Amino acid sequence: MASDTDPPALTPDELLLWRSLGRLVHALPRALEEDMARTGVTMTEFAVLLLLSEAPDRRMRMSALAAGAGLTPSRITRVVDGLSHHGMVRKERHGNDGRGSDAVLTDTGLRTMASAQATHLASARRRVLDHVPEHLVPDLAQALAGITEALCRP
């Protein structure tokens, strides 16, 4: 028996949205990884390279990079260490306090990101954007950004 504190049942449209999101969060990463396989970088690595390419001096605190990529501190460390192994990123002590580390995009990393960018953009269009009516993109973008922000708040 439902109590007064139970949430209301989902409408048919809400249920379709919820179930579709559940399938999407599993299917989309696999599809994007398949698309990126020929570039030599994973989607996660590409996201890190892209964030660093847009940062001032191509440098970010590891904690800010983790937050920007939606990764845990331990996961960003593993990703950056892997990229460092291939000469795409280097880690340096943070200049102001020396307690944290910065990730710095190298010229090799910038070239790798640039060469993978066309594949990434084609994947974004084919896998997602081509399926969303253009007039819905602004509202959908805002809604997804709001959900992401709420989930990523400490």
Rank of each mutant, 00 (worst) to 15 (best):
E54A: 13
A141V: 10
G109L: 05
L136Q: 15
R59A: 05
H94M: 08
R30F: 08
R78E: 13
A66P: 01
P12M: 06
T39H: 03
G87K: 06
D139S: 14
G68Q: 01
S63F: 03
S74Y: 05
V79C: 04
L15Q: 13
G40D: 02
S74H: 07
A67S: 10
D35T: 08
L71H: 01
L121Y: 11
A141G: 07
P133M: 04
A124M: 15
H26P: 00
L105Y: 01
G70C: 05
M113P: 00
A27N: 11
W18E: 15
A55V: 01
T42M: 05
Q142G: 10
Q142W: 10
R61T: 03
S20C: 12
L28N: 06
R90N: 03
S84K: 10
R99N: 07
G100C: 02
M43E: 13
E134A: 14
H135F: 09
L52C: 06
P133L: 06
R99A: 11
R30V: 14
D35C: 12
G95L: 09
A116K: 00
L24F: 15
T119R: 10
D97F: 08
R93K: 13
R93D: 07
P56S: 09
R127V: 09
G109C: 06
V80L: 06
G87I: 07
G82P: 03
V48G: 05
L71D: 01
T119G: 04
H120E: 11
P73M: 04
L129K: 06
P12A: 12
P56R: 14
G68L: 01
S74M: 08
L129A: 08
G82I: 03
L52E: 03
V89K: 01
H135I: 09
M43Y: 12
S123C: 09
T106K: 04
L21M: 15
E33C: 06
M36W: 04
T44C: 10
L71N: 01
G70P: 00
P29I: 04
D130T: 10
A118H: 11
P56H: 09
A67D: 08
Q117A: 12
V79F: 06
D130K: 09
E34R: 12
A67L: 13
